[in-house]
């Protein structure tokens, strides 16, 4: 914990030094200026409103992509026919640039919330599928046989035999997914939404308002840090409680 704090303080110090060196608050404002603007935006309520809008888009798109992507990945890892059928689709989706998916979604479905969320989910989905597919390929056949001879029902097998084996892969997909999803949500907001962190950064860009850009970026990073510390890590610890502790 102490090492983390020192590392964090060093980052702020480097930022402060950089701002002093640049000498122009329009190019790189110091930490204090950004903190003041953050307090201002928080007081007027716009910060909470925009963070909330972005966060709900992140949550919905993330949940959709993880749920559908994991199911597809599991099926592809488990059944060879599904793998052969789905593989070309995955390769196309994986290699389609995020921007293309977003622009096409807006053209086909209009500048709507649905289009925005589908575009984000489609960007994340193939990565979740590919990660979980590796996990499904590595499932232990011995445990499968065990579950079969003891006649465990489908629900018990899923919950107690399959999902714990997939847990590390699901965690990896969730980790990388969360950071990817919020970056793409910002682009989606910049291109076609009337609110959210991405929208605010877009207007700040037109005014060359670096302070505002940093304010929103840092505020949202802080939110994600809180989610990581108080949601992702405790869940990971609970899931890994049976593993012998590392020294």
């Amino acid at each position: 914990m102490a090492i983390r704090l020192v590392s964090f303080a060093l980052l702020i110090a480097a930022w402060y030094a950089g701002a002093q060196f640049a000498g122009d608050a329009r190019v790189l404002p110091g930490p204090w200026a950004v903190a003041l603007m953050m307090a201002d935006e928080a007081r007027s309520g716009t910060l909470a409103f925009n963070l909330g809008a972005t966060l709900s888009r992140v949550a919905i798109a993330f949940a959709l992509a993880m749920l559908i992507g994991s199911a597809i990945g599991w099926a592809m890892g488990r059944y060879r026919t599904a793998d052969r059928f789905g593989d070309p689709w995955l390769i196309v989706l994986l290699n389609l640039p995020a921007l293309v998916i977003i622009v096409l979604a807006y053209i086909w479905a209009g500048l709507t919330e649905t289009a925005a969320i589908i575009a984000v989910a489609l960007n994340k989905l193939p990565i979740a599928a590919v990660t979980v597919r590796e996990g499904a390929r590595a499932l232990d056949r011995g445990l499968d046989d065990m579950a079969q001879v003891f006649r465990m029902n489908a629900l018990t097998r899923m919950r107690h035999v399959v999902l714990p084996q997939l847990a590390p892969y699901l965690a990896a997909a969730a980790r990388s997914g969360l950071s990817l999803v919020w970056k793409i949500v910002l682009i989606v907001e910049l291109l076609g939404r009337p609110n959210g962190v991405g929208f605010e950064i877009g207007t700040a860009f037109q005014l060359f308002d670096v302070t505002k850009i940093l304010t929103y970026a840092l505020a949202f990073t802080a939110v994600m840090l809180v989610i990581e510390t108080f949601l992702v890590q405790p869940v990971e610890r609970h899931v890994a409680r049976w593993r012998p502790k590392a020294a």
Partner: peptide
């Protein structure tokens, strides 16, 4: 045909 099987390796679920 209710079976009880003891495999060569214990085959317990490590997470339970």
């Amino acid at each position: 045909g209710r079976l009880g099987v003891v495999f060569q390796e214990p085959r317990l679920l490590p997470w339970r």
